[in-house]
């Protein structure tokens, strides 16, 4: 039989998450194994393991806090959620899934050919390297 798996992406690979943020124009990103304070709305006391510095697209810092299960959850100030809302998180998830998947495929010895679909989906076709 041919294989069939469906996966809903959650942010779990820090390197892929940072690459995805860069794809969406967020270059000033710092990350660490320990949570760092987010310089957000005055009085706010957020922390995150991946911190995106304030810039043209975000008035305040935002970030991603690593949960006990190893996945990262977005921490974004309400004032920035207009631009960085659900639609933006979906775009980030697509870019994250792309980087995380391509990395795994190369690790597993596949040659990868990429096709862009009209609906925005990305199709990766693989052959095992000889």
């Amino acid at each position: 039989m041919s294989h069939y798996t469906r996966i809903r992406t959650r942010f779990a690979d820090r390197e892929a998450l940072q690459k995805a943020l860069e794809d969406l124009g967020f270059d000033d990103v710092v990350s660490g194994d320990d949570p760092m304070p987010l310089r957000g709305y005055p009085g706010a006391q957020g922390q995150a393991h991946v911190v995106v510095r304030a810039g043209e697209q975000n008035q305040y810092e935002f970030g991603f806090l690593r949960e006990a299960d190893g996945t990262y959850v977005a921490r974004i100030e309400a004032v920035d959620r207009g631009k960085l809302g659900a639609a933006w998180l979906s775009r980030l998830a697509l870019r994250y899934a792309y980087h995380a998947t391509v990395s795994r495929l190369h690790d597993q010895g596949f040659d990868v050919v990429e096709e862009r679909q009209q609906d925005g989906a990305i199709r990766l076709l693989m052959r095992r390297m000889a």
Partner: peptide, 18 residues
């Protein structure tokens, strides 16, 4: 192709192939 992964616009993935 031996394998295919489709990454959908919402970030869901479908992996299929032999």
């Amino acid at each position: 192709p031996d394998c295919e992964v489709v990454i959908n616009p919402d970030g869901t993935l479908v992996a299929t192939g032999i």
